[in-house]
Simulated scan of single mutants.
Amino acid sequence: MRVEPIQVGRAEIRSVEDLIAFHRRIRPYILRRLAEFKKSFEEGNEAIFEELVFCILAAGASARMGVRGVEALRGVLLSAPAEELAERLQGLHLYPASRAKYIAETRDYLASKFRFRLKELILSFDDAMGRRDFFAKNRHIKGIGYKGASHFLRNIGFSGYAILDKHVLRGLAGLGVIEGGRPPSTRRQYLEIESKMREFAERVGIPLDEMDFVLWAARTGMILK
């Protein structure tokens, strides 16, 4: 799904009041983007895989790098070998060869194991946790962990996942929700921080699915993906 960054301007969030005011100002843009994400799931398997590729490319790099990479690969994602994918990523990504390999291996696994019926696969899970665990813990799905799996599922319209990237973690730390801003390195740590973020979101009246947008936009000045 092609998206353009929505420029909203950075904000200094020093208090809950600052957070709520910023959320109120940018919420129409957040809701518009969330609605766009739901459409990508309805577009079918190729669009769903494109969002997974975005998350593979964004992991350890940046959302902008993920967007640029997907644009370069669109049209050949389902067919090109890793070498061609890497060539197309040259100059656009920090790790063109490794990310191209991740994409090709993940694609081939999903094709051989599930006949690339990604929509059917994702809907087969009865609970949100199991759905995310499948993508985060599966050794055949390369290049993403809990943050990437959460990001992927949010970007295809599934709710209830916290995307704990560096901007979100620093924002939470600045508001006293967590101590420090170090990224979680285990599933248990991820779920603990996610739980704290969920409780905080409920307390201040900002839906969890919108909270990471607010914290990310405050530090970057934009709403992207």
Rank of each mutant, 00 (worst) to 15 (best):
A100Y: 07
R88H: 13
F114Q: 02
A80P: 05
R99D: 08
Y109W: 10
L78N: 13
F114P: 01
A104Q: 12
Y109H: 09
A136L: 11
Y102E: 01
A128T: 08
L85E: 02
R132A: 07
I141F: 04
L92P: 01
D133S: 14
A111S: 12
K113R: 14
Y95A: 05
S124T: 07
Y102M: 10
A80D: 02
Q90S: 15
K142A: 07
R131I: 00
A111T: 14
H93A: 05
R107Y: 12
S79C: 10
L94Q: 13
E83D: 12
E84M: 15
A86G: 01
N138A: 11
Q90C: 14
D108S: 07
Y102S: 06
N138Y: 11
A100G: 04
S79E: 09
K119G: 06
R131G: 02
R131W: 02
I122Q: 00
A104G: 07
F125L: 04
L94G: 12
P96S: 05
A86W: 09
D133E: 11
G130H: 04
F125G: 00
V76Y: 13
A80M: 11
E84G: 02
S112T: 10
R131P: 03
Y102G: 01
H140A: 11
H93F: 08
A80E: 05
A97E: 15
S112Q: 12
L121N: 02
F116S: 01
I141P: 03
P81V: 10
M129R: 15
S124Y: 07
V76F: 13
L110T: 01
L123V: 06
K113Q: 14
H93K: 08
A80T: 04
L118G: 00
K101C: 06
I141D: 01
D108V: 06
F134S: 03
L77C: 08
D126R: 13
A80G: 02
A111H: 12
K119A: 03
R99P: 03
L94I: 15
P96D: 07
R115T: 04
L85N: 04
K137G: 11
D126E: 15
A80F: 14
L85V: 09
E83S: 09
S98V: 10
R117N: 05
V76A: 08
Y95Q: 07
D133R: 13
K101W: 14
S98I: 10
F125C: 00
F116K: 07
L110V: 04
A97Y: 13
A82H: 10
L92E: 03
L78D: 13
R117S: 03
Y95W: 15
R131D: 04
R107C: 01
S124V: 08
F114G: 01
E105I: 06
S79K: 15
D126F: 13
G130Q: 09
D127F: 05
R99T: 11
N138P: 07
L78S: 12
D127W: 02
A136Q: 10
K113G: 06
A82V: 14
A128L: 15
R99Q: 09
R139S: 13
R115E: 05
F125A: 00
A82D: 11
A86S: 08
E84K: 15
K101M: 13
F134I: 09
E105D: 06
E87P: 01
L92Q: 05
Y109K: 12
A86V: 04
I122S: 00
E83P: 03
Y95T: 10
I122Y: 01
